[in-house]
Every structure is written in C-alpha cells, then in structure tokens.
Write a protein that binds this DNA or RNA. Sequence first.
DNA 1: TAGTTTAGTCGAATCGATTCGATCGAATCG
DNA 2: CGATTCGATCGAATCGATTCGACTAAACTA
Lengths: 353, 353
Amino acid sequence: MDGDTITRPTLSDVAARAGCSPSTASLAFSGTGPVSDATREKVLAAAKELHYAGPDPRARSLRRGRSGIVGVVIDDRVSEAFRDPVNIAMLDGVSEAIGEIDAALLLLTAGAGSDKPVSLETAPLDAVVLFGCSTTLERSISMLTQRGIPAVVIEGDAGENVPEIALDNREATRLGAEHLRELGHERVGIVVLPLAPDRARGALTEERAASSAVATATERLAGARDVFPDAAGVVASGSYLDEGLIAGRELLTATPRPTAIIAQSDLLAAGVIRAAEELGLRVPEDLSVVGFDGVRVDGLDYDLTTLVQPSQAKGRAAGEAIVRMLAGEHPSSVTFTSTFHRGATTAPPRVAD
Amino acid sequence: MDGDTITRPTLSDVAARAGCSPSTASLAFSGTGPVSDATREKVLAAAKELHYAGPDPRARSLRRGRSGIVGVVIDDRVSEAFRDPVNIAMLDGVSEAIGEIDAALLLLTAGAGSDKPVSLETAPLDAVVLFGCSTTLERSISMLTQRGIPAVVIEGDAGENVPEIALDNREATRLGAEHLRELGHERVGIVVLPLAPDRARGALTEERAASSAVATATERLAGARDVFPDAAGVVASGSYLDEGLIAGRELLTATPRPTAIIAQSDLLAAGVIRAAEELGLRVPEDLSVVGFDGVRVDGLDYDLTTLVQPSQAKGRAAGEAIVRMLAGEHPSSVTFTSTFHRGATTAPPRVAD
DNA sequence: TAGTTTAGTCGAATCGATTCGATCGAATCG
DNA sequence: CGATTCGATCGAATCGATTCGACTAAACTA
C-alpha cells in the first residue's frame, strides 16, 4: 500500500523506523542479549509496517559462518536413487537427525556425467553426507576437507578423518550363504549390484570383480564367495526389480541350473522370484532365494529370506555424526549389523534334480 | 605442511600472495572481466599454494543476491513423500530443469506437526516449489512473497501471482468413470486420497468431502461423482499399496458389492486388486479397477487401466517456470492433461451377480 | 605527434546482518 | 552521599566476496 519500493527493507530500515540502532534491532529479533520490552515491540511493529520478513539468510549465514544446510550427495539422478527404498529410508534418517538442529537437506547429484559436482563447490554447505558415491568420492572429499566442510560417508571408502557409517555386508551375506549351505545347496547363483559407475550389466567375470569400485557390492560378493567360492554371478545395472528379473532369467536358464540364488538386494530378489515364476519354478521348492536389505517389496507375495539392515538407523547415524561434527566433536565411524531373517523363500534343494 | 592455520584463506590472502588486489583476484577466478594470462596464472598458483578452494559461497551469495538453491516443500516426512513414484518423478523433473542453471534442490518439510516451516524463513532460497502442500500453503506463500522469493505450486490453490502446475484431475477421472459406465457398471466404489493434512482414514462422508483441504483428491472425486453421483467412498491415509488393500477390503465386503472401483492412484489400485484377490475375486471378471498416475507398480501383474499423468513433465515444467522467474519473466500457469490407458483390469460386469 | 581507444589493474563501496566493546543513566550498596 | 553494578543501547568492525568507476600505460588512428 504505502509505496512498494523495489528493494526489500533491511534490518537498518526497520531500526530507523523503530528509532533505534541496527544492533539493537538485531538483538530484538534474534532474542539474544537484553532488550527492553518496549524497544522489542517497537522493532516488531516497525518490521510489520515495513513488511520486513526477518533477517536475510544470506547475510546472516555469512556473518555466522553457518548456513543450516547439509548436503546429501547421490551419484544417480534423483529418480534412480530413490527407486530403492533403502536409499529413501537412509535419507529419511538423515533428515530426521539433522532436523533437530533445524538444518535442511540439499540434494546434490554427482552423476557420472558431470565432471564435477558444481554445487559441491558453490553451495553454502555446513556439512555433507556422501551416499557411497563410488568414483567421485575421493575428489569430493578432498575438496570438502580443503574447504573445511565436515563430511560423513555412508558405505564407502572414506579418508582419514572422515567418519564412515558402515554395514557388515560381508559377514551378513556370508550368514545368508551359510544358511543355504546348511540347507544343502551347492549350486548357487549370485545377482550382484553394479560394480562400476557405468552400471554395466552382464556376467560376472573375475576381471570385473577385481576392478570393482563399489564397496557395498564387492563386500557382499566376498561374503557369498566365502561360502560358495565359485558361484556364478550376474551383475545388474541397479537395484531394481526389473534388473533382478533379467539377471534371474539369465542365471536360471543356465545348465546346470542353480538351486539357490543370492541377490544383493531385496528388489533384485523379488525380480529373481518373478523370473522363477516365469520359468515355472516354484519358490522355495525348486529355487531358494536370499535377498538383502529387509525392505517391504510392494507386491511380493513371499516372506523373503533376507538380511535386514537398519537403513533408517544408518541415515540417522550419519545425521547424528554430522550434528556432532558441527558441534566440534569428532565422532568415530560406526558399523551397523544386519540381522538374518529366515523367511519362506529358502528350503532344502529337491533331492532328485 | 606449511602451518595449517585454523582459519581458511580468503580471496584477499590469495591476492596478497599473488601480488595483486582482491578485485583482480576475483576477476581471475570468476572469469568475468579482462585479466592478463600472466596474472590469472599467478592467482591460480597462489590459490593452489594456499589450498584455497574457491570463493566462499556465503559471501558470494550475499553479494550476488543469489544462492543457487531452490527449495522444494513437501508436507510429509521424506520417507512418506517418496514412497509414491509420482512424487519422485516430479522431483526428478524439477531437479533436471533447475540443474540447467546449476541450482540444487533443498528439501524442506512443512509437516503438520511443526507450526512453521522454520527453514522456509531461514534458508537462503532463490525460489521455491510447493508440492501441493495443503494447509500450510497459504502461509508459506505469503511469507515467500513478502521475502520476494518466487514460488511455483504443483497442484494446489496458488495465489494471484504464483504460477501453478496443474493437472486435469477432474476431467481425467471422469474419463475413467465414463469408461466404466460404458462397460455397464453401475455400482462403483471410490478409494480417495487423503482429504486433510491429518490423513485420517475412514468412510467418505459428505461432510468430509466438503471440508477437504487437498485439491487433487477433491478434483478427482468430483470427476468420479460427475458420472457416479452416489458412489460409496473410502478415504485412505496415503497413496500406498497397503492403504489400497485396507480400503479395498472395506469396499468389497459391503453389500451390495461394487462391480468396479475407481482408485485415485495406481498404488491404491494395486492394493485394491490385492484385496480382490484375497477375497477370491477375479480382476477384471468380478471386479474392474481403474487407477490414476500411470506409474509402474513393481510386482503388480496386471496391465492396469489408468489415467497416465506426465509426472516428470510436471516437475520439469515447475522447474522451468522457476528458471524463467529467476530470469525476470512471469511464466503463466500450465495445466497438464492425463491420457486414458485402457489396460486389462476393466471389463463389463458379470451379467448375473 | 596529438588524440583516442582499450586492456589491465586497483580502491572503495556494497551486500545485510551480527557482535564485541564502550557508553550512559539508573538503581543498588556500603 | 559517593561508588559500584547492572541493564539497555549504540558505534564500529567484521564476515568474504563482487562490482563500479577511476586510473595507467600501451596501442592505434588521423
């Protein structure tokens, strides 16, 4: 009404109108320091009249040295990363933990395509959570430490001073594999998560296994190989049901056919089961399937035998580590353990095959 | 090595070491303005020696008036909002569009719990996308306009100058309903998306329908009622398969049983189909089901008859609107249209029922 | 050769708030 | 009553970069 100027009012404007100095106005707004009730009200009234919406976050964050923003780096595009409930749960955990210091999450993609995650350099970040980003990880971390921005890595090879939120991938998978061996299985197939950022699909060769850049997949593979050293494997191009279907078809049409399949995620396992159904195989009578993650796969009728990992807790732990780092502490790495869930998708192999 | 001081180097430090003024150093870094190659190299060398990682985003954004951050407001917690692929697709669209101006996404939750979305006030945002946030919407928008931060609303009642990305919810649902009527259906049930931020589950009463705060649900409901004015309805507490299952059970155990169900989302539809299977009903012979969204529901064996909406495009459009607003333009609202997909979950009702 | 352009550099103001130390009046205390 | 606190307020420095106008020297035009 009273002359909308193009420029927004500043705290000084408010102070001028309230008849006090900017410093006092600042104190009145932030609640820090002693300010008389009369003055505070005058300032607030002036602010209302001028349609002043509170201090500019940019200026405030420059002065305070904090922006209240925590970055989350994923190396897919958004739609890919969030197809897996595990990632969503982790993100949720992070969000919850850092919400306690009123921070918000900045979603950053460090796609294989873009050479540098431009935003990592240019965003006003207080801290960063790296979601097991394979290749770009090293570069990202060195940049962050140079900037003095604390970082936490979830399942990835972190550097010296970077706390890591880890999972007992190898031991857990071994547990699942041993379960299969105890049931009597000998011919086992493995559906492997992507081993390289290019997400190439295809049979698992020694060469590919050796040059893997993704810790999670490698560790789970090692766990399976601990029990079944020469199990055949197929690498999927992502943790999706469709990929499990493709991989399952491939493994199940080989001769001799495996009697059990270890999938590195529940979504992959669900796909494998679908493939088995397609081929007229019954689960678990004709084929045992073990998954990983312990997520509810919508639409899967089976109670999946799997390794339940605490995804949300992992995210939460990452968030809490960040909160503590911002408070000046030096949290140490944490390793979470998965628990074996004996579902209805594993059984002894058929005697006469 | 050479004395790690606690404070990070600033551009002035670099300039001092390079033997030039801060202004020149700034030019050398940003690439703006004429700088001799010799000077540029000196500056870059000095930066490297001092482990200077580039200008501080906080200071830069204060001066430039831009932070490169676009907020996305969802009114659930992260894990809820991203269970529906539609939301993920939209987010992906936004992310893609604003990626072109090298902006990143800040995830903000305006949960029903927190009185004020604290981050909306305190985050350095250039613009905001509001994901059809029911109640908090008005307050959020007024706060943003006061701040001078441009906003775009996806499926929600935006204010005067706020562009809206809309969908033909009513017309599309009517199309689906008419399809059912043409097949001969008369007793139709509706599974309704949450009508209020409290996400209360239960039978659809006129009262609840009238006091709805969520545009999408209301519009789709109206479309169904255009064709079947007195169809029974059940309100779900979210767009999840489980909720569809619960709602489906309720609708399908009523007498007389409906011969068709219109679900307001594909996930709900999948749940309804599951409920039908539980009750020994065949789809589409005993029950026709129409969904909405056109997402692939993992694990659903049916080719769902549904209304396919361009989720990703909607997000993209929102992102593009933001880009244009940041460029000083005034993009107008856009309404997207859904296309009817005749799948295999609808058929004429059984003659003798 | 005088006059004009131009590339390169610099100084200083600016973005908008926060914060430390100083100040001043009033109230308290010995 | 003089000295000491304490509460309220203000001034000025600061956060770290960007940017505009000014200035210098070299190159070019007539």
